[in-house]
């Protein structure tokens, strides 16, 4: 289990990029931190979610 935006999720072992698309996020519009470290945008495919990770995903809305 890991914690994504405050909720327990059973997705350990999944690549971050696959998780993002499975829940409908557009990867170009998100910022992701895992255990308080920013995940560089070119590493979403190579980052594997692990048990105990604390993940924060911000999906930006347009307008300004």
């Amino acid at each position: 289990m890991l914690r994504i935006n405050g909720k327990e999720q059973d997705v350990a072992g999944q690549a971050l990029a696959d998780y993002l698309s499975s829940v409908g996020y557009n990867a170009a519009r998100v910022v992701v931190e895992i255990n308080e470290a920013i995940v560089p945008r070119d590493r979403y495919a190579g980052t594997i979610l692990r048990d105990g990770d604390v993940v924060e995903i911000v999906c930006f809305m347009g307008g300004g």
Partner: peptide, 18 residues
């Protein structure tokens, strides 16, 4: 970050934090 487009917002925030 005070951009208009969502993709630009994500790009700036992500790269600035990194």
């Amino acid at each position: 970050e005070a951009f208009d487009r969502a993709e630009e917002k994500a790009m700036l925030v992500s790269s600035a934090l990194a």
